[in-house]
């Protein structure tokens, strides 16, 4: 079958199946009319409203949110330190030193003051994979932190870097500002929409501004494939360190 013929045949089969069942549903609706309104609704073709009664907005204060975020990260075996905004550069330097590592990758948009002296830095423009592989660690910013699940979200912007640089090095230091921490996952999705919508736009334009690349990170890489024993560190970074900036 040619490519477009397969496409048409798949779509045609789906449409035929859906049409066939509309007739069945019409019969169901007819019988339901004699029964209850609830059953009739159940038989309606398209659910126009998705019932979104789950927790969308968090209820915690900023401090509680941050505490929860730290607690959940630590449950994943991530190492977390907190610092004040003016202590950030020092905190980064301390983390790098404590890691005992020398060579670090930094995304091109990482603030210059984060590049602590005394270490070898590789600034990513278009680094070769083998160079990234050679690095001992990586330092990045992030787009958002989700307290409830202890998740760090990267959109791979200039300060977060290309996906490969936070993947190959064995040690990842991520800087999260307290203002970036939301309580629930739906609040992260709200932030994505808000960062996109400026003024009135149609849906297609909104979709254009949604992130094209996202990596949600919940702790260092892990597996439980052998007898369900959790082993930290498989292919992704074995160590995840987080600095939470109380701004």
């Amino acid at each position: 079958m040619s490519a477009s013929a397969s496409r048409e045949s798949v779509l045609k089969r789906i449409r035929a199946s859906l049409a066939g069942s509309s007739a069945a549903r019409a019969r169901f609706a007819e019988s339901a009319r004699r029964n209850s309104a609830a059953e009739l609704r159940a038989g309606t073709e398209v659910l126009l409203e998705i019932p979104r009664d789950y927790a969308r907005k968090g209820e915690m204060t900023l401090a509680e949110r941050c505490a929860r975020f730290v607690e959940r990260l630590r449950e994943y075996d991530a190492e977390v330190v907190e610092c004040a905004p003016d202590g950030l550069a020092a905190a980064i330097a301390a983390q790098l030193k404590a890691s005992g590592r020398r060579t670090f990758v930094a995304p091109s948009g990482l603030p210059a003051e984060w590049l602590a002296s005394g270490f070898e830095w590789m600034i990513d423009g278009n680094l070769e994979v083998r160079d990234v592989e050679r690095a001992d660690g990586v330092v990045t910013a992030c787009f958002c932190g989700v307290a409830e699940s202890g998740t760090i979200v990267l959109h791979h912007g200039p300060a977060e870097g290309r996906r490969v640089i936070s993947l190959l090095p064995d040690w990842h230091l991520c800087v999260v500002r307290a203002g970036q921490v939301v309580e629930t996952l739906p609040e992260y999705f709200d932030r994505c929409q808000m960062s996109g919508i400026r003024g009135q736009k149609n849906r297609e334009q909104q979709a254009d501004e949604l992130p094209r690349l996202v990596t949600w990170i919940a702790g260092p890489s892990a597996t439980a494939d052998i007898e369900m024993t959790r082993i930290k560190g498989v292919h992704g970074p074995r160590f995840l360190n987080v600095i939470l900036v109380q701004d």
């Binding site: 998705i50 979104r52 789950y54 959940r72 994943y76 409830e148 699940s149 202890g150 998740t151 996906r163 996952l185 739906p186 992260y188 999705f189 994505c192 929409q193 979709a207 949604l210 992130p211 094209r212 690349l213 996202v214 990596t215 949600w216 990170i217 919940a218 702790g219 260092p220 890489s221 892990a222 439980a224 992704g236």
Partner: peptide, 30 residues
């Protein structure tokens, strides 16, 4: 919709492996 992932990603890892989220969730577009 993109935002429908806010439901799915909260359920999948919890239901599958008993984690709040799996260590890595990747999304890419073209």
């Amino acid at each position: 919709r993109f935002a429908d992932l806010e439901v799915m990603l909260q359920m999948l890892a919890r239901s599958a492996t008993g984690e709040r989220m799996s260590p890595y969730t990747s999304l890419w577009t073209g």
